[in-house]
C-alpha cells in the first residue's frame, strides 16, 4: 500500500516501525526466548545483573529478564485488544452516522458523549470487580470507552468528504452509498483512523501497564510489565536501578506508537503527498537523475 511506503520514507516512521516490530516479536516469541523459567524461584534473591541473570533477580529470586520477555505478550495483546475494540465500535458507526439518517446520527452522537464522560480506568476496575479478574474483559470494556475517539475522527473525515463536489458528482451519476464509501470516503478516512489507531495502541499500553501495576487483571505469579514495575518499586532501596527496565520498555513502546501516529499524519492528505514528493525529488536531484513531472504513484 502506498501509505506504508510513504510512512517508511520518513526517518521517524522507520524508527517507530522498527521498534514496534521488535515489540511485536517480543510478544510473539518472548516466552520461548526467555532463558529461564519466569516463575521459578530461587534463593538467589535481589541479585545484581550477571551473566546468569542479565537483569538480576527479584525478591523471590526469579530471573527479571525472563519475566520481562514473558510478560510482553499480555501487554501487547491487551493494548491491541483496546485499540481494535475501539476501532470497530467507533469507526463503523462514525462513518455510518453521516449516511444512516437523523435518528441513528443523534443516538450515536449522544452515546459517544456519554462514553467520553466515563473515566475508563475506574470503569475497567469496576468491570473486573463485577466479572472477575481477567485482562481481556477489562481491555474490551476500555476499548469501548475510548471508541468515541474513532467515532469522532471517522465521522469528521466522512463529513468533510460527503459534502465535496466530487461526491455529489458521483451521486448525480447514480452512485449508491456503498459505492461512495468504498470509492471516495474510505481513502480519506483511513489516514486519520490509522493515526487514532497508533495513538490508541499507545494508550492501551499505558492502561494495561496501569492495571497490572495495580495488580488488577492478572493473577500475581504471572509476569507483566506493570506488575514488574510495581514489585520492583517495593524494593527500591535494595535495587534502585531495577524499575528502569520495565519502565523504559513501556515508555519506548508508547513513544514509538505516538511517533508512528505523527508519521502517518505527516504523510497523509495533499500536504503529505507534497512532502513525500519533495523528499523524493530532492533525493533524485542529488543523484542527478531527471525528475519526471509529478509521478507520485
Amino acid at each position: 500500500m502506498t501509505m506504508v511506503r510513504r510512512v517508511l520514507s520518513l526517518t521517524s516512521g522507520r524508527i517507530a516501525v522498527v521498534i514496534l516490530v521488535l515489540v511485536a516479536l517480543l510478544a510473539l516469541c518472548g516466552p520461548w526466548l526467555a532463558p529461564q523459567d519466569p516463575l521459578a524461584t530461587s534463593d538467589n534473591t535481589l541479585a545484581s545483573a550477571s551473566g546468569a541473570h542479565w537483569l538480576g533477580t527479584d525478591y523471590l529470586g526469579r530471573d527479571v529478564f525472563s519475566r520481562l520477555l514473558d510478560g510482553s505478550r499480555i501487554s501487547v495483546l491487551g493494548s491491541l485488544e483496546v485499540a481494535l475494540m475501539a476501532l470497530v465500535v467507533g469507526a463503523v458507526p462514525g462513518i455510518l452516522s453521516v449516511y444512516s439518517g437523523r435518528a441513528f446520527e443523534w443516538l450515536t452522537l449522544r452515546l459517544a458523549d456519554t462514553l467520553v464522560a466515563l473515566p475508563f480506568l475506574l470503569f475497567a476496575i469496576a468491570v473486573i470487580a463485577l466479572l472477575g479478574n481477567g485482562i481481556t474483559q477489562a481491555m474490551l470494556v476500555t476499548g469501548a470507552l475510548v471508541s468515541p475517539l474513532f467515532y469522532r475522527v471517522s465521522r469528521a473525515a466522512t463529513l468533510a468528504v460527503a459534502r465535496s463536489p466530487y461526491v455529489e458528482a458521483a451521486i448525480v451519476s447514480g452512485a449508491s452509498v456503498g459505492w461512495i464509501v468504498r470509492r471516495h470516503v474510505w481513502v480519506k478516512v483511513l489516514p486519520p483512523i490509522a493515526v487514532a489507531l497508533a495513538q490508541t495502541i499507545g494508550v492501551g499500553f499505558v492502561i494495561v501497564s496501569s492495571l497490572t501495576f495495580l495488580g488488577i487483571g492478572v493473577q500475581p505469579p504471572a509476569p507483566t510489565w506493570g506488575g514488574l514495575l510495581a514489585s520492583d518499586l517495593g524494593y527500591l532501596s535494595h535495587q534502585p536501578w531495577a524499575p528502569v527496565a520495565p519502565a523504559l520498555l513501556i515508555m519506548v513502546t508508547v513513544w514509538a506508537c505516538n511517533l508512528l501516529a505523527d508519521a502517518i499524519r505527516d504523510v497523509s492528505g495533499e500536504a503529505g503527498r507534497a512532502l513525500v514528493d519533495r523528499r523524493r525529488a530532492r533525493s533524485r536531484t542529488s543523484t542527478s537523475a531527471p525528475v519526471p513531472v509529478g509521478g507520485s504513484r
Binding site: S164, P165, Y166, R183, K188
Partner: peptide, 9 residues
C-alpha cells in the same frame, strides 16, 4: 479545485 477526487487518477 474540488470537483475531482484528489486521491483518484
Amino acid at each position: 479545485l474540488r470537483s475531482l477526487d484528489p486521491d483518484l487518477t
